[in-house]
Simulated assay, not measured.
Amino acid sequence: MNTRNLFILSFVAMISIYVYAFGQDKTIEMIKAEYLFILGLIPLSLAFVFFKFKLKNYELRDFNQNNNISLKSTVVFFLIFQVVDYISYDGFIGMISQWILYWIMGLIALLLLENINYYKNYKAIYNKS
């Protein structure tokens, strides 16, 4: 399963749990509370789209091949953060209220890594010409 599908599946699951646990109004309120992080996704997404279209006819090199983290390590980090959040934010409800922040931060990290890879490819291709 690729990363894009994992993000989509995790987003649907997270929103479903949020609506079930908090209700629709509280869920929308919690998402709005993270507006600065969501706004941060806009320039990253624009840069991603720019590089994607600019480099669509070129063979790209994966400069991030040494930066991949295994799914096992990701799950271990997530579980550690969940235990800390469970203790710090007064139980289960406080713990799951942090999921939207983790999801947005994961998306930011993914877009940053992809943009860095595209930028390195862009520099390599256009410095040759």
Rank of each mutant, 00 (worst) to 15 (best):
M1W: 14
M1N: 13
M1R: 11
N2T: 10
N2G: 13
N2Q: 11
T3C: 08
R4D: 06
R4Q: 05
N5L: 14
N5H: 04
N5M: 10
L6D: 07
F7N: 04
F7M: 08
I8A: 11
L9E: 11
L9P: 01
S10P: 00
V12K: 05
V12A: 11
I15T: 08
S16A: 14
I17M: 11
Y18P: 03
Y18R: 04
Y20N: 04
Y20D: 09
Y20T: 07
Y20H: 05
A21D: 11
A21W: 00
F22D: 06
F22I: 02
G23Y: 07
G23Q: 08
Q24W: 08
K26Q: 09
K26C: 06
T27G: 09
I28G: 10
E29T: 04
E29S: 10
I31W: 04
K32I: 13
K32F: 13
A33I: 02
E34T: 05
E34L: 06
L36W: 07
L36Y: 13
L36E: 10
L36C: 01
I38Q: 11
I38P: 00
I38L: 15
L39S: 14
L39I: 14
L41R: 06
F48I: 03
V49D: 09
V49P: 01
V49G: 07
F50L: 03
F50G: 03
F50Y: 12
F50A: 05
F51N: 05
F53I: 12
K54D: 08
L55W: 10
N57D: 15
N57F: 10
Y58W: 15
E59D: 13
R61H: 02
D62S: 00
D62Y: 00
N64P: 00
N66I: 00
N68C: 02
N68G: 14
I69F: 12
S70A: 03
L71N: 04
K72G: 13
T74S: 09
T74L: 11
V75T: 12
L79D: 11
Q82A: 12
Q82S: 13
Q82W: 13
V84G: 03
D85T: 06
D85W: 04
Y86G: 02
Y86P: 01
I87R: 05
S88L: 12
S88A: 15
G91R: 03
G91F: 09
G91C: 09
G94V: 12
M95Y: 02
W99V: 02
W99G: 00
I100S: 02
L101V: 07
L101K: 14
Y102D: 07
I104Q: 05
M105Y: 06
M105V: 06
G106S: 08
A109P: 00
A109M: 10
A109E: 09
L112D: 11
N115R: 04
N115A: 07
I116C: 01
I116Y: 12
I116D: 03
N117V: 00
Y118E: 09
Y119T: 10
Y119F: 15
K120R: 14
K123D: 15
A124H: 05
A124D: 15
Y126E: 07
S129W: 08
